[in-house]
């Protein structure tokens, strides 16, 4: 299966091929259509460019992400939505050849500045990955790890409370409460992903980034995670990358459509799915390509 997390040469080549294709189509995608601004934004991205070596992966993307909203990012493979998502908590730092330009403000502070410490940033902007990746430790230790390294609990009782609370909010407590010491990897795929969500919310982030969190799950597990996302939006700002358009329609308030590194259209989810303004958006959501 194609893995959005791994940015390979092949991947970048695909982006370039698509560019050529599009030049033939002669459709302008450099301007974003729709409302990039929201009232009371939590994150403001301005003119973000991402390069892998010489190749451009994100081209001049500006977007606001509102408080307590779920923003879905959709688009064909290799369109840069995961890359953009990973800019929001500087996970792209781990890729050597990756260069990020532009400004991303979280509470009026530019997180792309060199001096920004990524450790507290990532505690504020948590991330859930495509493939469930629990640590090879017990369920309890998986959830307790974040609070431990950030010193969120003063003693064992407080830590217990955080762990139980996080598992409860991730809807997992009832299923695992009598086997907290068994390894996290012994859970089913869907449970593992909810464990990863519990692990993320245990450090009380403000924003949760989800990179195709359901792509490795069966429909029932997917439904549970979607329900969870719906509930979490009360307290968190959530940005979710997804390939499933129905999922975007179900869980999000706003949707952003990416194409070949450009943010083509952004707007209220209902609007995007019923009356898309851009021709490419329309083609994509009606399933003509992707």
């Amino acid at each position: 299966m194609y893995n959005e997390n791994l940015i390979t040469e092949e991947n970048i080549e695909m982006i370039n091929e698509n560019f050529i294709e599009d030049e033939q189509l002669k459709i302008d995608i450099s301007e974003t259509v729709g409302d990039i601004h929201v009232e009371d934004p939590r994150i403001i991205a301005k003119n973000v460019n991402v390069f892998y070596g010489e190749k451009i992966a994100i081209n001049n993307v500006s977007i606001d992400i509102g408080k307590n909203e779920v923003l879905a990012m959709i688009g064909p493979s290799g369109c840069g939505k995961s890359t953009f998502l990973r800019c929001l908590n500087r996970m792209n730092d781990t890729i050597e050849s990756c260069k990020v330009q532009g400004e991303i403000y979280l509470d009026n502070k530019n997180i792309l500045e060199k001096k920004t410490d990524v450790v507290p940033l990532r505690a504020r902007v948590g991330m859930v990955f495509q493939k469930p990746n629990p640590f090879p430790k017990s369920i309890y230790d998986n959830v307790a790890y974040g609070p431990k390294i950030h010193g969120l609990a003063k003693n064992k009782t407080e830590l217990d409370e955080i762990v139980f609370n996080s598992l409860e909010r991730a809807g997992l407590l009832a299923e695992v409460k009598d086997r907290l010491n068994s390894p996290g990897t012994s859970l089913s795929g869907g449970q593992q992903q909810r464990l990863c969500i519990a692990r993320t919310i245990a450090v009380s982030p403000e924003v949760i980034l989800m990179d195709e969190p359901c792509s490795a799950l069966d429909p029932i597990a997917t439904a549970k995670v979607e329900q969870l996302i719906y509930e979490l939006k009360e307290n968190f700002t959530i940005v979710i990358v997804t390939h499933a358009m129905q999922q975007a329609a179900r869980v999000s308030q706003r949707t952003a459509y990416f194409h070949l590194g450009n943010l083509v259209e952004v707007g209220a989810t209902e609007k995007i799915f019923t009356t898309p303004q851009h021709k490419l958006t329309e083609s994509y959501i009606t399933g003509r390509f992707g």
Partner: peptide, 12 residues
């Protein structure tokens, strides 16, 4: 993915 998970939680 294990290392990414830890980094994503804010581990150095």
């Amino acid at each position: 993915s294990i290392k990414e998970g830890a980094l994503g939680l804010g581990a150095s």
